[in-house]
Amino acid sequence: MNWVELLLYLFAVAVFPGFVFLSLLGTFTEWIERKVAARAQNRMGPTYVGPMGLLQPIADILKLLWAKELVISRGFSWRVTLFLVSTGVMALSASTLLMPISPIRLSTPLDSLVLVYVLFYSTLGFLAIGFSSPSPFGVVGSSRMLSIVCVVEPAAAISIYAISAALTGMGTASVSEAMTAQVGLQQSPALVLGGVSLFLVMMAKSLLKPFDIPEAETEVAGGVVADVGGPLLGMFRILHDMEAAFLALLLTLLVLRGPYPFSYADPLGWVLIGVKFVLVVLAATTLSASLGRLRIEQGVALLGKHSLLASIAALGAAALNYYVVA
């Protein structure tokens, strides 16, 4: 890796499609979510900052980032928690380099599994923020989050691997190449099942409605961040929005085939990516706005049945296609 490549790599991680781009996309995702939830409840939603309140989430986060840090005298070190959350943010930023929208693409066999393990840093940030707060609500939120994560993480891993394997071969299973691979009819079962699983994973990880169980009983905000404020809360909002945007983007590019029927070289294809992304987010938020919250064991069981089992079924379909049909 020479220094030009290194600079390009750093640019990609820091600006596009990494930190800057993904965090802006994340705030846009949050704006859609807030707007849809507001309209469903006959409210206006954000209107104040920017056209149609589009910049409201950014303003919220900046306000938090520049606020005074509130330190609870006997809690866990907030600097370490801040580091963990930031690590999650940067892990998400780095992972975007697997996507075809990146100027440099890293692609290896089995990068689907590497992606899942790297993304675990963002989950760790989520968990750390609740566990580290001295408030019982934060700890309860994180422990519920942990129960969900134990089902959602393997489901995400298996479905991403299964889709990649169905499209690029069992031994290759490159998520990066799967995003630009050709899809035949025989690969579609794995794609559909994996897509269903990934969609539920996205809803659970973005703490959308039936799965916002960490928020239950705290009724303040975000469950795990019940007693967190200031820059730490700002970073958490960035992490949460980026994760939601990342998973929606992954769904768009991997399951909904990105610019299909156009190509990445075609400007129309990029427009189509945008449209599909908005559709994914709209679908998730509409579903969220029209459903009630589940109890923790119901939520985990539902995710286990419809996300984990769907992902295992996708793996089975991919294996069947690879070893028997092809």
Binding site: L65, K68, I72
Partner: peptide
Amino acid sequence: GGLILAVIVAVTKRGVRETEP
């Protein structure tokens, strides 16, 4: 990157207010 980001955020904030639980 997480370390850099955390340092930036920690440096640019306005200050620290320590409270009781």
